[in-house]
Design a protein around this nucleic acid. Structure first.
Length: 286
DNA sequence: ATGCCAGGCACAGCCTGA
């Protein structure tokens, strides 16, 4: 058993088109939990057999042509918690799936893009974000270890984009969008990639236009947020950029975190450690 | 201000994405 639990999120931009890349990535990087977005497939179009053959149990919420999310668990069957974000029964878009897997609660989300703004799509984005903030509060307070992972369609700050000036009017950079993200984090969640790499330029998305991948002109919009039960276990985080470099790639790269499996670093173990000889702090190297 | 590229649908050219 590896020392770390690896949890990843990957906007595949069409699971059937991207299935070879997905399988190659699972085989090489072996995430224990993989949150997928933009399946662009109905429930019956999900490649269950291929995913199972790769060693993963899966749950998914499909939708014809658009949206769609899934959670894969390596060598395990994820247990469903909910298949939609509460707060709007009329919302038919498949953008949220919450499961328990490998001892962690995982909220897999695909937040609306919101372009063009202003307009009804941007209004929907902000309403969806408000519902997420409300629901996240309950998850945060649940006492379970929780990860919120997915494509948030938010560039949190101007440090998270190659050049903000060409995107100033985009829904991903609007003050209202960024304020929602700030208010979510203000509940106490930590942005795991930023916590591990406070000063690095990190991108997770490069659009297909203007040779943005070749120029490394990217945006950081795929995020993994941790509640306090998981924060002491965070050991490493990164982006599998090689997946974005494949032929016919998704416009997103997978993003991952590694969590220590042991209780080392948790409040319980710190209390326990007081009665034991001190040990060096965990290095975080994997 | 718009198209730039790409996937889905369904077979021509839209719509949507970010």
């Amino acid at each position: 058993m590896p020392r770390h639990l690896k949890i990843a999120t990957f906007n595949v931009n069409g699971i059937r088109t991207r299935l070879p890349h997905l399988l190659q990535w699972l085989a090489q990087e072996k995430p224990d939990v993989a949150c997928l977005q933009e399946l662009k497939a109905a429930d019956e179009g999900f490649p269950r057999e291929e995913v199972e053959r790769a060693g993963y149990g899966a749950l998914w919420v499909g939708q014809r042509s658009w949206n769609g999310v899934a959670v894969l668990a390596r060598g395990a069957d994820p247990v469903e918690s909910r298949r939609a974000l509460p707060g709007d029964r009329a919302d038919a878009q498949s953008r949220y799936l919450e499961v328990a897997a490998h001892g962690v609660m995982v909220g897999c989300l695909y937040l609306p893009n919101g372009n063009p703004q202003p307009g009804p799509k941007f209004d929907y984005k902000l309403r969806w974000f408000e519902r997420l903030i409300r629901h996240a509060r309950g998850l945060y307070d649940s006492g379970h270890p929780v990860v919120l992972a997915g494509d948030f369609n938010v560039v949190p700050t101007d440090e998270d984009i190659y050049d903000p000036k060409h995107w100033r009017k985009d829904a991903l950079l609007q003050p209202e969008t960024r304020d929602c993200y700030r208010r979510l984090l203000a509940q106490g969640w930590i942005d795991a990639l930023r916590a591990v790499h406070p000063d690095a330029r990190i991108y997770t998305f490069w659009d297909y236009f203007r040779q943005h991948w070749q120029r490394d002109a990217g945006l950081r919009i795929d995020h993994l947020l941790l509640n306090p039960q998981l924060q002491p276990r965070l050991a490493d985080a990164g982006v599998d950029r090689w997946v974005r470099g494949l032929e016919k790639a998704s416009d997103h790269a997978p993003v991952w975190i590694k969590l220590r499996r042991t209780a080392a670093g948790t409040a319980a173990s710190k209390r326990a450690a007081k009665s034991k000889p001190a040990r060096p702090a965990a290095s975080g190297a994997s």
